[in-house]
Design a protein around this nucleic acid. Structure first.
Lengths: 205, 205
DNA sequence: CGTTTTGATGTGACGCTGTCATATGAATCA
DNA sequence: TGATTCATATGACAGCGTCACATCAAAACG
């Protein structure tokens, strides 16, 4: 009637299955962070979650789907971070924008393998696209506060792409400070300043 | 004394080995373009090059080294393209800059898997870093023509990162036109214009 | 010229991987 | 209680990268 899971708590059957599923996702995330994509094998994921190598197939169609869920979690978490910026109405639009862009770069810096996964997961997956879309919409709203509505989409695309590139250059080690004399944070500030002054200039004309 | 290779030409032994090596690289590049990274197996590479699965080990330490050579070739080829822009002195600095950035984006568009490989190859490889460094230096010279020497490095980093991000967003399918209303080419033009007007403004002050 | 050396290539074998078919066994339900 | 359902465990399979070893012809040498 009851069942004790790996930490000894008494739970129902479906609760135990949900806990196993969560443990599998967590194990995969940890393995990805610690050893990169090659370290994420279903056998290793199962072992860390305390189940067998075949158990993941009871929760995910295949390995790719498990990885997609990692990416979805990363997009959602980042969206939560950006959404929290809306609760700081005292900050200027450009300050909020800089924080949002920095949050993206920070994911790349802290979890480079997860960051790469976010942009390599198949874009045709509906759930993944929705999670990424939520971040993009939140981001778009912040950009609109700075540049105004008619131009928000194109500037949003430019800003998001540029921040993604800054993160990518950092992740791949192509942003060596001795070569360019700057780091990613500095580039984000330059980016926001450049757009801001450009918009102010356009407003004067 | 002599040896006929796979296309029937009579060649010496070392020539044949060099041809095999080139055939392996070409086969790997084709398989990458056609089927993505998963399609690049040493068995498939060997088969397409007309040799056995073990033959690559006579020319490359391991599979990773073969892939690194693909990346090196991509960096070199892109550097050649950018170098050719120097032969157009009639073009304005901003026009040359736009062409250079577009060349990067175009690689991502035409050969997305190869593009991903360029930025995922280990940055600690000396030969690969040198090939990427040549492109960066050529690019830096073009940027210096536009923004002047003291600021060339930081603006170069920003421009290269942004272009990389535009390419990355396109490759991963995150630059949907219905969402942002623009494509990568448009973003490259916006990027160059923004920097150019920013520099002109700074010059007036 | 005959002999030896060298080096590219072919092949068998190993452990590892993702995946499927099947068995097990306990929670759930009639 | 008996039947069912469903998460999990396990055996098996093909494909993978890689290594050890065998082969065999070109090259070097006396």
């Amino acid at each position: 009637m009851t069942l004790s899971n790996r930490i000894g708590a008494v739970v129902t059957r479906t609760e135990a299955a949900a806990a196993t599923r969560a443990a599998l996702v967590r194990a995969a995330a940890e393995l990805l962070d610690e050893g990169g994509p090659d370290a994420v094998t279903l056998r290793a994921v199962g072992a860390r979650a305390g189940v067998s190598r075949g158990a993941p197939y009871g929760h995910f169609a295949d390995k790719a789907r498990l990885l997609t869920e990692l990416a979805i979690g990363a997009w959602s978490s980042l969206a939560d971070t950006v959404e929290r910026l809306r609760g700081e109405p005292d900050a200027t639009p450009s300050a909020r924008l800089e924080k949002a862009l920095s949050a993206l770069v920070e994911v790349g810096r802290r979890q480079p393998h997860l960051y790469a996964l976010m942009f390599s997961t198949p874009a045709d997956d509906a759930e993944s696209a929705a999670a990424a879309g939520r971040l993009e919409d939140l981001f778009l709203a912040i950009v609109a506060d700075l540049v105004g509505e008619p131009d928000a989409r194109r500037y949003g695309a430019l800003l998001m792409s540029s921040a993604h590139g800054i993160a990518g250059m950092e992740v791949s080690g192509h942003l060596a400070k001795e070569k360019w004399g700057v780091d990613g944070d500095r580039l984000v500030r330059m980016l926001v300043d450049t757009i801001r002054t450009g918009v102010e200039k356009a407003a004067r004309d």
